[in-house]
């Protein structure tokens, strides 16, 4: 193990370490703690210059105000409307593509695979004008499904990389044995491979959920009104209206951050397994 386990060192050093970790964590999360604290600070505290001390009262009404005076609830619902279909769509498509690229040998296999990988890295701006134009001409501009369709297509790149590598690590003998038995290819996919892919599907679901929930660029390019904007774009436009009303900005920020944070804590193991795929050989 590297570094040397702290339990092998002297007692004072161990104690020092046990103090250092929470202190470092506190400093690391300082911007977050500040905003969380501001979100429950009464407006009067800010007016009196009490920015850092304990709030004079816990003002959960900031959250109520955000919900009452702004379309925050609508924004959050819109985000779910974009995010959930994207997760389902991208994972469905990439199970299929990942299976094709992992199981079959054909001449253009690697070329198709690397096209997915490379496409996944391109800057969004090179896609912006044509994708916006396409969405407009399909009559899907400023709709949740117009945004979700693009996300499904784009996320398929990353998901294919992930699924293909995952299926490739499964024992190939399983598939060979089924073929010898004369099982049809689609039945191999459905009855043998899919049941084994549960961990990969779980990991990708949480990752894609977080990526899409947090997307800001495409939300601003493809949606314009409060009825369709996801929470990131909504928060950005609210920020323009709430000049210096930091208690409201903070409450809105915390709300927007909440779903992916909950997702992360509930599915932590899958989330990290997904992110670190390929980090070990």
């Amino acid at each position: 193990m590297f570094p040397r386990p702290i339990t092998q060192l002297s007692a004072p050093i161990q104690t020092l370490y046990k103090i250092a970790v929470p202190v470092a964590l506190f400093l690391w999360l300082l911007p977050l703690l500040g905003v969380a604290l501001t979100s429950v600070r009464p407006a009067s505290d800010l007016a009196q210059g009490n920015y850092f001390g304990m709030p004079s009262a816990l003002a959960f009404e900031n959250y109520a105000l955000v919900f009452k005076n702004t379309p925050m609830l609508q924004y959050m619902l819109n985000s779910f409307w974009v995010t959930i279909p994207t997760v389902i769509g991208a994972i469905t498509l990439s199970c299929l593509t990942g299976f094709a690229l992992a199981i079959y040998r054909f001449p253009s296999n690697l070329i198709v695979f690397f096209m997915f990988v490379a496409g996944n890295f391109v800057p969004f701006q090179i896609l912006m004008v044509p994708v916006r134009d396409l969405t407009l001409s399909l009559g899907m501009y400023n709709t949740w499904y117009g945004l979700a369709l693009f996300h499904i297509a784009f996320q398929t790149g990353f998901c294919t990389l992930f699924m293909r590598n995952f299926i490739k690590s499964l024992p190939f003998e399983l598939i060979e044995a089924a073929r010898v038995e004369g099982v049809a290819e689609w039945r191999i996919f459905w009855f043998i491979v899919i049941p084994l892919m549960r961990p990969a599907i779980a990991a990708l679901s949480v990752l894609v959920f977080t990526f899409i929930w947090n997307d800001f660029f495409w939300a601003t390019v493809l949606t314009t009104s409060a009825a369709t904007q996801p929470v990131t774009a909504g928060l950005s436009s609210l920020n323009g209206q709430w000049i210096a009303q930091w208690h409201l900005v903070s409450a809105g920020s915390i709300l927007a951050a909440l779903p992916p944070v909950l997702m992360f804590f509930l599915m932590q193991r899958h989330f990290i397994a997904g992110l670190t795929l390929g980090a070990v050989k």
Binding site: T97, M115, G119, L127, L134, F150, T156
Partner: peptide, 20 residues
């Protein structure tokens, strides 16, 4: 079979990423 499995994903990726 591989091309049938690839078709939907490849189609979407072409339309929204590669061609743009």
């Amino acid at each position: 079979a591989p091309w049938l499995f690839l078709a939907p994903g490849l189609f979407m990726f072409m339309i929204y990423v590669i061609i743009p």
